[in-house]
Simulated assay, not measured.
Amino acid sequence: MLHRLLLAAFVTLVGGCAAPDGDYPSLLPRPIEQTSFAEPDRPVPEAAADPALEVKLAEQAEALASAGAAFDRAAAEAERLGRTARGAATGSEPWIAAQVALSGLDALRGATSEALTDIERIAIDRAAQGLSAYPELQRLLERAQAQNRAQIDRIDAIEAGVQPAG
Rank of each mutant, 00 (worst) to 15 (best):
A97V: 05
R109A: 10
S26M: 01
L140D: 14
R121T: 15
P29F: 03
G87K: 05
F71T: 01
S103D: 15
R154M: 00
V100Y: 13
P43L: 07
W95M: 13
D153F: 03
Q145N: 13
E93F: 07
D23E: 12
E59Y: 01
L57T: 02
A47G: 02
Q147T: 13
G82M: 03
E46R: 13
G161P: 04
V100L: 14
D23N: 11
S36F: 01
E54R: 08
S26P: 05
D23T: 09
A123E: 11
I119C: 09
D118C: 02
R80A: 13
A127S: 15
L137N: 10
V14K: 01
A75L: 01
E33T: 01
R143L: 09
Q163W: 06
A146F: 03
V14R: 06
A89L: 13
A78V: 03
F37T: 02
L108Q: 13
Q138S: 15
A61T: 04
E39L: 07
T12D: 04
Q163D: 13
Q99N: 15
A67E: 12
I158T: 07
A58F: 01
L64T: 09
G161I: 01
L64Y: 07
V14C: 04
A75Y: 03
S113D: 13
A67Y: 11
L105E: 08
A65V: 03
A70H: 05
R80I: 00
A101H: 06
A97C: 08
F37I: 00
A74T: 00
E39W: 04
L137M: 07
L57D: 05
L81S: 07
L7M: 06
L81N: 07
P135T: 03
A52I: 02
F71G: 07
P20D: 09
W95Y: 14
R73Q: 12
T12E: 05
V44E: 15
R80P: 01
E93T: 14
L2I: 08
I158W: 04
R4I: 03
